[in-house]
């Protein structure tokens, strides 16, 4: 198959044959349970939760816990993302409970209600870069510096970004899921306010509030902004790009190959680099933006 996918041979294939070849290659990487994501999601959440008693009981100092909590926030989204795409186990499968457990648990650090994230993320996939229907279209910026400015503005109480997921749920007839978001955010605020007025405000700021903000900024940069930049084009092979991160694949959380995820969302994150390498000639043939990767 590797030989068939050679650029010189692709010209001889019809559009249908090219589609079949592409799907055959992608199919090899699907249907595998990503156990690393399961351990990652549950373990990350447990470490984060453990930081609170460890700091409050003076077992570890706050200055040491803050970077760990920030790392927890950065690492919190991707296992939930695997679950949103039913990669761990689809509906009706024996491990379905585990898929849902990972989805719910890993989102706690970022106060991400799992069902809301899944519903809105599916809309992002279906309408990527659509100025009306892509609920992540507000994450934009003409450059890295502009992204950080927009990110700051998007966090303000009067920002249009605040209601993006709510509007998306309403548009798709899933408004009932907003209750998940309200309950989760109420619990978050109750914990924050309760601990803050009990004398632990600095601890809560450095264990949850600031790590959550830093984590969200990091995640939106690598997961939402960089792979869709400049965000002007729509279409299966044009709405997402590959890009070369100067900090490498681990720091960019595998998002250099995010184009593979948008083409085949059921491929686990850990297998997207291998799938990319095998699909690269076809993607190049189709005129995808591969960013020198």
């Amino acid at each position: 198959m590797d030989q068939v996918a050679h650029p010189a041979n692709l010209d001889a294939l019809s559009a249908t044959e090219l589609d079949v070849l592409e799907r055959q290659i992608a199919g090899k990487y699907m249907g595998k349970v990503p156990w690393s994501a399961v351990v990652w999601g549950i373990g990350n959440c447990l470490v984060f939760v453990a930081l609170f008693p460890l700091v409050l009981l003076d077992v570890i100092p706050l200055w040491a816990a803050f970077p760990i909590a920030t790392l927890n926030a950065i690492l919190a989204y991707l296992p939930s993302h695997e679950a949103q795409h039913n990669i761990i186990a689809g509906r009706g499968k024996p491990l379905r409970w585990l898929n849902e457990l990972v989805g719910h648990l890993s989102g706690i650090v970022l106060v991400h209600p799992y069902r809301v994230m899944r519903a809105t993320h599916m809309e992002h996939h279906q309408h990527t870069n659509d100025s009306e229907k892509d609920c992540d279209i507000d994450i934009k910026g003409k450059s890295t510096a502009d992204f950080f400015l927009q990110s700051l503005l998007n966090r303000q109480p009067g920002s249009k970004r605040n209601g993006a997921y709510g509007r998306c749920l309403e548009r798709t007839g899933q408004s009932h899921l907003q209750l998940d978001a309200i309950l989760m955010n109420m619990a978050y605020l109750a914990i924050m306010f309760g601990f803050a007025w009990s004398g632990y405000a600095i601890e809560m700021a450095l264990l949850w509030w600031l790590p959550k903000m830093l984590g969200e900024t990091y995640l939106t940069y690598y997961l939402a902004w960089a792979p869709h930049f400049p965000g002007h084009e729509q279409g299966r092979y044009r709405d997402t790009r590959a890009f070369k991160s100067r900090f490498g694949n681990v720091v960019s959380m595998g998002m250099q190959f995010h184009i593979i995820h948008h083409l085949y969302p059921r491929i686990p994150l850990s297998l997207t680099p291998a799938a990319y390498r095998e699909l690269r000639p076809i993607l190049e043939h189709r005129g995808c933006d591969l960013g020198g990767m």
């Binding site: 109480p157 605020l189 007025w197």
Partner: peptide
Amino acid sequence: ILFSPMAFALGFLWPLSCQA
């Protein structure tokens, strides 16, 4: 009201500024 900036200021920023 619960999710308003003023509630966040009173519920969190006030004790945070105080303890800082």
